[in-house]
C-alpha cells in the first residue's frame, strides 16, 4: 500500500465518524455525502470495513430497521459518547497535522 493510500485509509475513519455525528445515517447515504463533500478516491464498498471497525470500537451505535415497502432491512448508524470523544481527538489531531503539512508542503513549493 502506497503512502497516500495509507493516509486515505486513516482519514476515512475520521471522515465517516464526522458524517455520522451530523445525524443518524446509513451506508449508501454515507457514500453519497462523502461524494457531495468531495472526499477523494473513495470506492463505495470501502466504507463497510470502516463502519465495522467503528462499531467494534464502540464509537457508533447501530440498529436494523425493516423496510416498509418490502425491501431489504436498513442498518442505521448513530454516534456514541465514546465516538464523540474520539471525534474531538481526531479533529484536534487533524488541525495540527493540517497546519504542519501545509507549512511543509507549501514551503517546499515556494522554495
Amino acid at each position: 500500500m502506497s503512502v497516500s493510500d495509507q493516509i486515505m485509509k486513516g482519514l476515512l475513519d475520521g471522515a465517516i465518524l464526522a458524517l455520522i455525528a451530523e445525524g443518524e445515517t446509513y451506508g449508501y447515504q454515507i457514500t453519497e455525502k462523502l461524494k457531495e463533500k468531495q472526499f477523494p478516491d473513495i470506492s463505495e464498498g470501502s466504507i463497510y470495513p470502516v463502519l465495522l471497525r467503528l462499531s467494534k470500537k464502540g464509537y457508533v451505535l447501530t440498529r436494523m430497521v425493516k423496510s416498509e415497502t418490502g425491501g431489504p432491512k436498513r442498518k442505521y448508524y448513530s454516534i456514541s459518547d465514546k465516538g464523540k470523544e474520539e471525534l474531538d481527538i481526531f479533529r484536534d489531531k487533524w488541525a495540527k497535522l493540517n497546519h504542519g503539512m501545509s507549512n511543509l508542503l507549501g514551503g517546499g513549493k515556494n522554495a
Binding site: Y26, Y28, T31, Y48, L52, M64, G71, P72, R74, K75
Partner: peptide, 17 residues
C-alpha cells in the same frame, strides 16, 4: 449475526446504487 447484517446492508446499498 455479522453475516446476516452485512448481507442485508450490502443488499440495501446495491439496491440503491
Amino acid at each position: 449475526e455479522y453475516r446476516d447484517e452485512l448481507e442485508e446492508e450490502l443488499r440495501d446499498h446495491l439496491t440503491m446504487a
